[in-house]
Amino acid sequence: MLDVGFSELLVFGIIALLVLGPEKLPEAARFAAKWYSKFKRAISNVQNDIDRELRLSEFREQMQQEMQRIQELEKKMEAQMQELQQQKILAEQETSLESKTFNKSINYYKTDISMPLIYQSKNWFELQNCSQPPLRIVPIETNTPELKVAV
């Protein structure tokens, strides 16, 4: 704080001894030390208060930055949620349209289930007005062994 050396303190002490005298010098030294310590404590308290306020202001700035960051993330999340909801709605609409067209196509091409597949394709070709090569139906001979039960 003050750049005071030993020789300067010695000169100051001799002057104080001459001015105050040997009886009042110890009392004056205690008084000066007491006020010096009060002054030093007051200055350190002020410095601590200033440091605390600076830290609080920095903390407030950090908090504001974090709050802004959180708000930006919330906005992004909301936008993503809306996008997902729109995609879900579009997907539901597409599936409903597909099911409607599928149902129409099923109704349009409805055939008898008991009818063999070969005739079902013939009916489909007829509905589409397509030409189909003539079908050859070949009977299949099966050799099934007869089961005999012994009694």
Rank of each mutant, 00 (worst) to 15 (best):
M1A: 07
M1V: 06
L2Q: 08
F6M: 09
E8P: 01
E8W: 07
E8H: 09
E8A: 11
V11R: 06
A16R: 02
L17N: 07
V19T: 05
L20D: 03
L20E: 04
P22W: 10
L25I: 04
P26V: 06
P26A: 07
A29M: 08
R30M: 10
R30P: 00
F31Y: 12
A32Y: 06
K34V: 02
W35Y: 10
S37P: 00
S37Q: 11
R41N: 10
R41P: 00
I43Q: 14
V46L: 08
Q47M: 09
D51F: 15
D51P: 01
E53M: 12
L54N: 13
L56S: 08
F59A: 15
E61L: 06
E61Y: 01
M63I: 07
Q65L: 04
E72T: 03
K76W: 01
M77Q: 07
M77I: 03
Q80T: 04
Q80L: 12
E83H: 07
L84F: 02
L84I: 09
K88E: 14
K88V: 08
K88P: 00
L90T: 03
L90C: 02
E94D: 11
E94K: 13
T95C: 02
K100Q: 10
K100F: 02
F102K: 12
N103Y: 03
K104A: 09
S105A: 11
S105P: 00
N107L: 05
Y108Q: 12
Y108K: 11
Y109S: 09
Y109R: 03
D112P: 03
S114Y: 00
I118V: 11
Q120M: 05
F125Q: 04
L127E: 04
Q128A: 13
N129T: 04
S131T: 12
P133K: 14
P134W: 01
R136V: 10
I137E: 08
I137C: 05
P139M: 06
E141V: 13
T142C: 11
T142I: 14
T142K: 14
N143H: 10
T144P: 02
P145Q: 13
E146A: 13
E146Q: 15
L147R: 10
A150C: 07
V151F: 10
V151R: 01
